[in-house]
Design a protein around this nucleic acid. Structure first.
Lengths: 265, 265
DNA sequence: AGGTGGGTTCCGCTCAGTGGGAGGATCGGG
DNA sequence: CCCGATCCTCCCACTGAGCGGAACCCACCT
């Protein structure tokens, strides 16, 4: 991985991806200048390349802003990001939503963050910051705590060593969080109370799979209040999680692995 | 845009996208040779570029196959492909599903095809070929007929001039289809009976928006049989479509359909 | 007017990209 | 066991695609 993209030695491909990767959830539309800056490319280069990408469908131009193009959307949907899991889980997520009318989350761990694989939300009764494809800290979300509790030691250590504060209720003391993680193991669920966003609480359970009960994902609900009906939510979650785990194909396949369809013309 | 990618004159960017665009719904995983062939690149070039893309996250290597990488998935989710519409529509789609337990579709027109923006399907009772991000012909699907009925003249003409047969029931006579499109306008809904896949019927209604009632999308249901309960399905669809239209923000952030000529794929 | 901050275009130098071809690995059939 | 087929990896000398500083344009300020 070369250093500065504007220095000779950087490949065109890396520059192309630098341009694309300049976009994120907070920057869905960028002016040429912003794009160049965020991509670390000279203005003229960014301009030429961006123009080329627009022609190829990788970017789109909206007035004086660039946005990610349709082709990328198309292609992204082909990426084997837990397709199997998401497919299998979808009906269970619906069931959960129907039963609770809460925001439903399906997530996996990606490094030291939660990666949201799917989300169902009714008309927002609670402010929810998650986004399909979005990442959030492990220690501030219900699904995150579940995943963290079942993560390898080194991940736990790394996360516990740096607990960023998000709200006044965010748990930032390693000791307290570690105790909570132990409880997750003991009780089979995790919860948060306004630790990610004010006014939002969550419960979550692991999705286990295979004979060894490997935790492959987490299933969570976000609600305005946990004081009433928590037991009911957990019960619903556990039923759904069990159903998902049971419905997953036996083969412990590579992460996200799926029918690797036949090749050739 | 140039022809053969392996001839000098093709830009690196175009080669990169040729590699990515070599993947489609039927080819989610490709061997190097297949990849090179489908991208129209010399093997050595494909090898080197693909390797580079793997390093950048644009591709992923699974054993001896390449698949679309996570980065592209991430980025694709940022593409402004009717985000607003999909977001607004989501709860209504759930409602529809809850009410009917049929497969629910939200689609827009992309050139001379239907582009599926969202889909809910319970445990498959009916074989459904659609896929989020997938495209199907306008004349063989319920949502397609709705969108076609409200498409500009030139699109209608182009589509009517070439009605491919998909099943024995596919309508291939321009006259009959034209008559049906008139009925769509008159009656406010479209239907298909095994015209796309055997054993599947569909109904669909337009989603209108704004003071002029512009058709911005179509909402459809797929069921095994329309003889019973069609009226009920249509009623549900119309309520949902009206709700979506009403909930959309005043200014449609992006144009409904793409120009007919554009062929980004 | 002059200034500022965006976007666009130009063009000659040069190094990144190219791809034919050699070589390796793996398989399976004779 | 050899041999051919198939697929992947690597090398390297040639060259034209890509680069980006600089000039320019334009809209909108003061």
């Amino acid at each position: 991985m070369a250093g500065n993209l504007s220095t000779p030695g950087a490949s065109v491909a890396s520059r192309v991806f630098a341009l694309l990767a300049a976009f994120d959830a907070e920057h869905r539309a960028l002016s040429l200048t912003a794009l160049a800056e965020r991509a670390g490319l000279p203005l003229a280069t960014a301009h030429r390349l961006a123009g080329e990408l627009v022609g190829l469908g990788g970017l789109e131009r909206r007035a004086d802003r660039y946005v990610v193009g349709r082709l990328v959307w198309d292609l992204g949907l082909l990426a084997p990001v837990q397709v199997e899991l998401r497919q299998v889980a979808a009906p269970f997520l619906h069931d959960l939503y129907a039963a609770t009318h809460a925001t439903v989350h399906l997530a996996e761990r990606a490094g030291a963050e939660v990666l949201y694989l799917d989300r169902l939300s009714g008309r927002a009764t609670v402010p929810v910051v998650s986004r399909v494809g979005g990442r959030l800290p492990l220690h501030t979300t219900g699904v995150g705590k579940v995943l963290l509790a079942h993560a390898p030691d080194d991940v736990q250590r790394a996360v516990l060593a740096d607990l960023a504060r998000v709200t006044p209720y965010t748990i930032t003391q390693p000791g307290r969080l570690r105790e909570q993680l132990r409880r997750v193991h003991r009780e089979g669920f995790a919860q948060t109370v306004e630790e990610m966003s004010p006014g939002a609480c969550s419960v979550a359970v692991p999705v286990r799979h295979g004979p060894d009960g490997q935790v492959v994902a987490a299933l969570g609900l976000v609600v305005p209040d946990l004081r009433r009906g928590r037991a009911r939510l957990i019960a619903a979650l556990q039923v759904a999680a069990a159903g998902i785990g049971r419905s997953l194909p036996a083969e412990p396949s590579s992460p996200g692995g799926l029918p690797l369809s036949e090749s050739s013309r």
